[in-house]
């Protein structure tokens, strides 16, 4: 059983190597404490450990970050720009979600 699994792994490796190789990772960096991680770009690495190390070398050569996230690109699901109308338009007519919608006298303070 072990041998079988091993063989399977080998063919898998060979196939992958022919097309070559390392998966693509998206890199997110927290530039300083108190800010959220921000997408900075992508890179190729064999695994998550290498992805972090490469991200350190590629994207933080000048103290640009204090924390790195890497996510394999294939795991990211993105909204479709063609559907942006149906996704975001409903918010347009809901002006009552904004504080300026409410009519209050100027004399009213601290509100």
């Amino acid at each position: 059983m072990n041998t079988c699994a091993h063989e399977h792994l080998n063919t898998f490796t060979q196939q992958k190597n022919m097309k070559s190789n390392w998966p693509l990772w998206e890199v997110f960096i927290r530039s300083k404490q108190g800010l959220s991680h921000k997408h900075v770009g992508s890179l190729h690495a064999a695994d998550e450990e290498m992805a972090i190390q490469n991200a350190r070398d590629v994207y933080t050569r000048r103290n640009e970050g204090i924390s790195i996230w890497v996510v394999e690109s294939k795991h990211i699901t993105a909204s479709n720009p063609d559907e942006s109308e149906s996704l975001y338009d409903p918010a347009n007519d809901k002006v009552y979600r904004h504080p300026t919608f409410y009519d209050l006298p100027d004399s009213l303070k601290h509100i």
Binding site: L9, T13, N17, S20, A46
Partner: peptide, 14 residues
């Protein structure tokens, strides 16, 4: 090196 890194990653994952 690229091949070894992939093999190592797969071994670890397995």
């Amino acid at each position: 090196v690229r091949e070894a890194a992939v093999a190592y990653a797969e071994k670890k994952a397995a």
